[in-house]
Design a protein around this nucleic acid. Sequence first.
DNA 1: GAATAGATTGTCT
DNA 2: GACAATCTATTCT
Length: 206
Amino acid sequence: MNRVSLASSFTPLARSFYARPVLEVARAMVGKLLVHATSGGPLVGRIVEVEAYRGPEDLASHSSKGRRTARNEAMYGEAGRAYVYLLYGSSWAFNVVTGEEGQAHAVLVRAIEPVAGLDVMSARRGMKVTDRALCNGPGKLCKAMDIDRRFYGVDLCAPPLFLAEGRRGKLGRSHRINIDYAGAWIEKPWRFYERGNRWVSVRPRD
DNA sequence: GAATAGATTGTCT
DNA sequence: GACAATCTATTCT
């Protein structure tokens, strides 16, 4: 199969997939494929770890307490669009907006299992394709998949960036990672991952 | 594998 | 001016 037919063999998930409660979408996203059709061929990763963020009550969310700024504006938009932001100065994070418009809920993709375009990902990350650190973190997968602020607010229901159907194994869930500032919300089991998958970023506490 | 320290910069107070 | 939904290198066991 050549590169062109490989890219066209993936079909974007419809907006109805995203227009549901955020925890439902987060759970369903584990096992789906993240596809970026680039001029150099498709970059594809199987999603193995995500986290749900549900403002305004969720203190870990950028939209907590109804906060609405230039940065998180995309969270308030229609379901199925991307919310991309820079954190800690040098890493990009990729989120999918869910629920109803005006509702600032989103799902952060924390880790993927590389599926296609491995040579490109490997070169972009400066490490071997077999290295567990290739895509096991929000910033790492964005670097490997060539996702940055160019994709802020873009529609994920059509190429070049979209989710496609995939298969998944056993679902696991745990507390979210690195939200020490969020008080009692630290304990919410809003991280979903595939059990036993070596590409999951942080080993579950439980 | 686990723990630690330093890097780095847009965004918000 | 402080912080952040992190990463990397380094230094242990």
